[in-house]
Simulated assay, not measured.
Amino acid sequence: MSEKSLSEAEYDAITDAAAHWCMRLHADDCTAGERQAFADWHDAHPLHAFEYAAMLEIWDVADHLPRSEPAPAVLAFKPRRRLRAYAVAAAVCLAALPLAALTGWEAGWLPSSYEHFEATQGLRKITLGDGSQVELNLGTELVYSHYKDERRATLKKGEAFFKVAHDSHHPFIVRAGDGQVRVTGTQFNVWKYEDQVRVVLLEGSVQISSDAVHGSVPLTPGMQASYHTGDATPQIAAISPNDAALAWRQGKLVLDNLALADALPLINRYLNKPVMLADTTTGTIRIGGIYNINEVNNLVPSLPKVLPVYLTQNQDGNPVLNSIPRKAPKG
């Protein structure tokens, strides 16, 4: 395919192919041959990769739709530049996830808009479609969808500070891990790393749940909630006066005499290769200091200079911290 402008028919063919591969690669009976054919198609043209990435984003939205018996579908997206891609993606999701009585926007099951944001080179400030202001930490990925009855953001990874535009008729939902934060208008911070989530509330009130089964618990200003995947309820605690959870908004990572087991998740979110602990003893060693989030890579090789540890590497190429055994006193 040449680099000239594509015709509508050529563009449609790529969109259709992306939808097909999105469905096949999520199917249980997808073969190795199909996966190789997809890889060949994906790498054949930059637009192939672009369209497939768009399909995956819509697939993520569909993962939260109601599931029931198959039924005829009526797609009711509001007009957008990428309307056809969304419609095809929604049709793919229908084939993969049986839905009943789907009437698109009017049923509140499909969004009228969908936005994807990433902060890869530095901190980023964005405005969502509802007017809410969000600050993204380095290495953060966020998607936002506007539904008829609610506004929904999904923090896929990283950290975000929200100033939610008040709208009592359309609650603002932030999904992080298996849990969610439900608000109408407030200011709060959400951090997600692997299976850990921490929510810090500055203003207003929110309801926190750690999974889709158990009920939610309220959070008031000056409080924090934390949970891991599988937790029935979040752990609620007061924010300490010297809490540095929001220091990232000034580009800083503050480690206030933390055990390495607690400090590494805060450090690793800025690294391509997470640092591992050799054992639990190493995890009890404490670390402190203030660091620039853009220079955290330089922190890892310097740790043996300030802590009783040495660095090795595991078979996956991750740096591993090992404690230096203390010598027994003579005598």
Rank of each mutant, 00 (worst) to 15 (best):
D243N: 06
V197Y: 03
P234A: 08
T229G: 12
I236N: 00
L219R: 00
E194M: 11
Y193S: 07
Y193M: 10
I208D: 00
R249V: 08
V213A: 09
V254W: 01
S240C: 08
I208K: 01
A225D: 05
M223S: 05
S216Y: 07
A245F: 11
Q250S: 13
P234N: 12
H214Q: 14
D211A: 07
S209N: 10
Y227N: 00
T220A: 10
A244R: 04
A237T: 11
V254Y: 00
V199P: 01
L253C: 05
K252M: 12
M223G: 05
Q235I: 15
V213D: 09
I236A: 01
L202S: 11
T220D: 05
S210W: 01
G215Y: 04
A245G: 05
D231H: 03
D195I: 07
H228R: 13
I239W: 02
K192N: 10
Y227R: 01
Q224T: 04
Q250D: 15
A225F: 10
G204H: 04
A232H: 06
Q250L: 07
S205W: 11
Y227F: 14
Q235C: 06
V254E: 10
L246H: 04
V199N: 00
S210N: 10
Q207M: 15
D243F: 03
P221T: 09
Q207N: 13
S209A: 14
Q196N: 09
Q224V: 09
V199Q: 01
S240V: 12
S209R: 07
K252C: 08
P241H: 12
G230P: 04
G230K: 01
S209K: 05
A212H: 11
L246G: 04
L219M: 11
V217L: 15
A244L: 06
T233E: 07
S210D: 06
L246Y: 06
